[in-house]
Each structure stands twice: as C-alpha cells, then as structure tokens.
Design a protein around this nucleic acid. Structure first.
Lengths: 203, 203
DNA sequence: ACTTTTGCAAGTCAATCGTATTGCTATACC
DNA sequence: GGTATAGCAATACGATTGACTTGCAAAAGT
C-alpha cells in the first residue's frame, strides 16, 4: 500500500472546498470537478474519498455544524470570568450572524442545505435535531437567567428561545441580502435582548 | 397569423408550473422540459414565450410577488370594519407564514430565489426593493399605532418593523422544516405582538 | 523479495442540460 | 386570395453532469 493517508483530514479539506464553491454558486452549482479543482486534487481522488456527491454533501453538513459549534464554544470560553446567561446568549447569536466571510459562507451553505432538506427526509431529520439542540441550549440559558432573576419569571424559556433563534435567522437573511449591515442586525438583537432581560416591571 | 394568444396569461401559467416544480426540487432542479411538461405544453412552446431560463425565472419572481401581495390585500380587505394597525400587521404576518400549500410553495420558491439572489446583483437589487417596501408598510402601520397610543412612544417603528419581519422569516423556515407547526409559529408571533402592543408601563 | 492493498490518475459513459435551428400550419391582413 | 407572420412542434447540438472502469505506482505486511 502507499503511504497511509488521514482519511478524515482529506475529507474535511474537500468539504471546505465544497463550501467555497457552494457559497458562490449554491450546492447545485458545485460540480464534482469544480470541488476537486478548488481542493487542488483530481476528480478521481475526490471520488476515492466520497462514493457519491450525496455522501460528500452529507459529510460536509456534519463538518460545518461541528466547526460552527467550535467557533461558538471558543468565543464563549474566551470571555473573561464566568459569563452570565445573557452574555452567553448574546455571543452565541452574534456568532450565528454572517458577520465575517467565514460565517457568511457557512450560512450560505446552510441555506443551500435548507432547500435540499425541505424535500429530503434524511437531511430534514438531521436539521431538526440540530434545531432541537440549539433551542434546548438557549432554553437552558434562559432558565438559568430566570433563576437568577435576570429574566422575569412569566417568560417561558422555550418560547423565548424559539423567538431568539427565529429572529436571528431572519436577520441573517437580511444581512446576506445586503439589506441590513451586520452591525445593524446585531443592534436589533441587542434591542430584543434588552427587553427580554429586565422584563416589564423590573427595570 | 394563427389565433392571437394572450401572451401574459400564458407566461403566468408557465410561471405557476415553474413554482410547483421549484417547490419540490428547487429552482436548479426545474429543467425547461420539466416545466413544459408540468404546464402541459411542449418545450418549443415554452421557448416561444421565454427566450431563456433566466427570463422565465425573473418573470416568475415578479408574478409570485404580485400574487402574494394580492393575497395579503384580499385578506385585509376581508376583515370586518376598519381594522386596527395591530390586526393589519397580524394578518399580514400570518399570510407570510407557510400555512397552506399555496404559501408554502411560494415561500420555497422565494428561498430558491434567495440563494440565487445572494450572488446575482439583478435579483438581489430586486429583492432589496421588496424588503424595503415591506418594512416601510410595517413601519407605517406601527407609526399609526403609536399615534393611536396602541404602541408605546419609545418604540421605534423602523426597528420594530425589522424585528417583526425577521422574526416571521425565521419562523417560516422552522415551519418549512416541519419543526414548528404553523399554529405554533403563529402563536409565537402573537406573543411578540402582544408585547409590542401594550408596551412596558401601559398594560 | 514478493505479494497485497491503498492511493490516485485518466478516460469513458449515458444522461441531461439550455439553446438554436428548421419547418409546418393556421390565420389575420391587404 | 395571396401573403406575410404568429404559434408551435420537432429535432439537433455542444457542453456538462455524476458515476463507473481500468490501470498503475508505491508502500505496508509477510
């Protein structure tokens, strides 16, 4: 056998090449030959690592989610001291917005996935699990905030979590369409958060 | 010449065939042959009405927006008496959600457009104008609500309009992914509206 | 040292795409 | 009633697609 290659590492490199193409032309516009060229490898080599285009897409989806989670986690851990739930939520939402080129690309690829997932049960199930996990994380943070008195007790953590995520998703779309600026979208999120924390009657 | 045909009417029929395909397989997955078959015509006939696929897509985008506006207008005009700004906003937002099959298809096509528009300046400019018009309409309603004392004066109509639309866009995505139910999404919108109308200190 | 197997390149394949071309038919117009 | 033309059908074209096949070089295992 020739030199043993780190299979997963190669697959990640190919997945990242796929993103760059998909961000510019959509998932459908990314041919295997394009992706191979972007990754600097041959079509044959790409097919050695992914049996089909679908396999490549599914793997890339998992990888992009993993990286997004890593970015969010790193951002939170970089915060000084023990961050409050409010800060954790705020930083997480900010990381979800397409602020820089990396998250912009990530969001675009996710939208491409979204279109596929609507009519693909396997992808849709996967996406549903992701949404559930994200909402649960948000709801947990909100429950802690309620316990600490930062959020009024009459606020339902599950509903507020859904509202926060939906709001950020919608704002992300507006940013991507170059209608809102990234800073403007972040300001709107902060506005919503300011009302959520310090509910009616508290401040 | 043969019988003179209503050009626009034919183009609308073809556009609607395009939606049905695009809703199921995305805009890229809708070939001219598919659309022609769905419309019950030949490929040659389709090409007689649209010079290129891009022409067809652009026309269909304009048509779907027109129909969406008509649906919203009809829904509001069907309301008894003189509706308050709150009711107008609520019904408009509800019509934006993919509640039935028609609006679900419409939203899916819009997402397909969205993916294209991100990297197509002509489509993006068109979309930006649509967003601007919608936000202006919402802001106007909110200004009226502030004037009538239904919304606290410290609420900025422009920001609140942006929040409402972004929230609904995000919830629409969740509904399409079959994560939230249509009723659940509508309940969340009502929850947000209930806080907007009757701001802190009023009720 | 020889075998086996991995890594990869190159070419091929049928299918499908958007577009262009050609020609017939029916009708509106002079 | 001749003729120009709109409406439409049919076919062909070159390009591109994802998938498949074949072949070979290199290194790991024995």
């Amino acid at each position: 056998m020739p030199k043993r290659v780190d299979h997963e590492e190669r697959r990640r490199q190919i997945a990242e090449a796929l993103w760059r193409i998909a961000a510019a032309r959509g998932l459908d516009g990314a041919s295997l030959r394009d992706v191979a060229a972007e990754a600097g490898i041959s079509l044959g080599q790409l097919q050695h690592y992914f049996t089909s285009k679908d396999d490549m897409i599914v793997f890339a989806l998992g990888h992009i989610e993993h990286l997004a989670q890593q970015r969010i986690r790193a951002r939170i851990e970089a915060l000084p001291g023990a961050p409050t739930p409010r800060v954790v939520l705020r930083e997480t939402l900010a990381e979800m917005l397409p602020l820089d080129e990396a998250s912009r690309t990530g969001y675009l690829v996710q939208v491409s996935y979204f279109v596929r997932a609507v009519n693909d049960e396997r992808l849709r199930t996967h996406a549903q699990e992701g949404i559930a996990a994200l909402r649960a994380f948000f709801a947990d943070q909100l429950k802690a905030a309620v316990a600490q008195g930062e959020v009024a007790a009459e606020r339902d953590p599950d509903r507020e979590a859904a509202l926060l995520i939906a709001l950020t998703d919608g704002l992300s779309a507006a940013v991507l369409m170059e209608y809102d600026s990234a800073q403007g979208a972040l300001a709107l999120i902060d506005l919503h958060l300011a009302r959520l924390f310090s509910g009616p009657g508290s401040a």
